[in-house]
């Protein structure tokens, strides 16, 4: 029962993340949608897979390693892309920009 809930939650979050990448106005808000929804949806689906499958415990541990690596790597890459996009010259559509105050 709980694996069906986790799987549906993961799928719905993935779908909202894709819609967010399509709908948001600039790069940084798209990064919000991509990072959070990909990490949450992947964690939900992988936990559901661990509960569903019938396999020895080592294989389940391998899936846990996959979930841990997703949770470590995804925010790191998003941080690097955000900094690169700012240095590349994409102006954010924001109300207040303290990063430009210190670097111009």
């Amino acid at each position: 029962m709980i694996e069906i809930i986790l799987m549906l939650f993961g799928g719905a979050v993935m779908l909202f993340g894709a819609l967010g990448i399509l709908r948001f106005p600039d790069v940084y808000t798209r990064l919000h949608a991509a990072t959070k929804c990909d990490t949450g949806g992947a964690m939900g689906i992988i936990l559901a897979l661990i509960l569903i499958m019938d396999a020895p415990a080592v294989v389940r541990a391998k899936f846990l390693v996959l979930a841990f690596l997703i949770a470590m790597i995804n925010p790191m890459v998003s941080h690097a892309i955000a900094r690169g996009a700012y240095r590349y010259g994409v102006k954010p559509k924001v109300v207040v920009d303290m990063y430009a105050w210190d670097n111009s």
């Binding site: 719905a12 979050v13 909202f16 993340g17 819609l19 967010g20 709908r23 948001f24 919000h32 949608a33 959070k36 929804c37 990490t39 949450g40 949806g41 964690m43």
Partner: peptide, 12 residues
Amino acid sequence: LLESNLKVAKNV
């Protein structure tokens, strides 16, 4: 993480 997913869905 759960809260942030729900918040991004609301924002979308």
